[in-house]
Amino acid sequence: MYVQVKRLWQGDTTRGTISAQHTSFDIDNVTNHDFVGVGGYYMKDVGFYLLQSFTGAFLIFYGVGGYLKWYYYIQRREGAADWKCQPDRFLQPEDDRLEFWLGSLNMAIGSLLSGILVTYIMNGGETKLYYSIKDYGWVYFLLSIPINYLYNEVSIYYPHRMMHHPIFYRHHKVHHRFKAPTPWSAAAMHPYEFIIFQFLLEIPIFLVPLHAGVFLFWLIYGYYYGILAHSGIDLHSMLPWQPSVIFHDDHHKYFHCNFGVNTMIFDRLHGTLRKNDRFYSETTFGGKGAPIQDPSAAGVTDKDS
């Protein structure tokens, strides 16, 4: 975020690439070490950008998440029926601690990878980001806004649903240990899953021209609503496409349904929205639930019920 704001503010009209006419200069004139640093080219000032990355990530994670935890889970705990999606269920203390430390670990991993990426970009590394709307015109710019939003949701829904296949669920189950999620749950998952989602979020900047402002907006949007969606607080969105918090809270409560985060579009398309006339449990795979008249068909035991 810091890198893109800086470039937009400075009016940088480059696309973050080393153009053909500059290739000779970049390669042959490195005596000033503009493109040399830790690990070779493009890593100058890597420590500075890592600091920015860690600071920004944890300010949001601890700032937004910490405020919600303090205001609701501490100050208003006794009145949980007024605000909590699952008012009769709280995490056990050990799960609460695990959620915080696992989320912090993943945020550190993400900050490290992002810091290296932005160092690469700021030292002239090749991407498809551009900074002037004139480069591709207003039509392309405006169309890229909803398209990037839909791509981000595609990159959440389908990998997430795949992780709920019995073969992969044993790793994803770490995230579902938190059946009544709190804001820390947003990043509390197996590290390999976190890295997958980070990769899918950032890979478009290497594949298609994308205005840095659009990329920045959806990056902040997804980060913020990811925390809210896992907050466990019964908040209703003012945005028509953004579901209320209880939508994703139900995913943690009922497991194999409601795989989206920022829209219900793909859950509606594939019939994986939770339905009141279906039975769900951790052993009911597929996203469609089981007929409520015969929960035993899903391998449900009395303990599951």
Rank of each mutant, 00 (worst) to 15 (best):
I265Q: 06
D277S: 14
H248T: 08
D302N: 10
Q293N: 13
Q293H: 13
S237T: 14
Q242W: 08
H256T: 04
F259Y: 15
R278Q: 12
V261K: 01
L273T: 01
L273N: 00
Y280D: 07
D294H: 14
F247K: 07
D294W: 15
P291V: 05
E282T: 09
K303E: 15
H252R: 03
D249V: 08
G232S: 07
S244L: 12
G287M: 09
H251I: 04
G299W: 06
C257I: 02
R278V: 10
Y254D: 08
I292A: 06
D250A: 04
D267P: 00
P291S: 12
I292Y: 12
F266G: 03
S237P: 05
D302T: 10
R268D: 09
N258F: 00
I246H: 13
A298S: 12
M238H: 14
L239C: 10
Y280A: 05
G287H: 02
Q242H: 12
K288S: 07
P291T: 05
I292P: 02
F247W: 08
P243F: 03
A290V: 15
S244H: 13
E282H: 03
I292G: 10
G271P: 06
P240R: 06
D294G: 03
D267Q: 02
H270M: 03
L239A: 10
D249G: 01
P240K: 00
I292V: 14
D277K: 06
R278W: 07
G286D: 02
T284H: 06
D277T: 11
P243W: 05
D302F: 05
S244D: 15
Q242N: 15
N262G: 08
I265S: 04
K288N: 05
G299V: 08
T283M: 11
D294N: 13
H236G: 14
D294S: 13
L269G: 01
S244G: 14
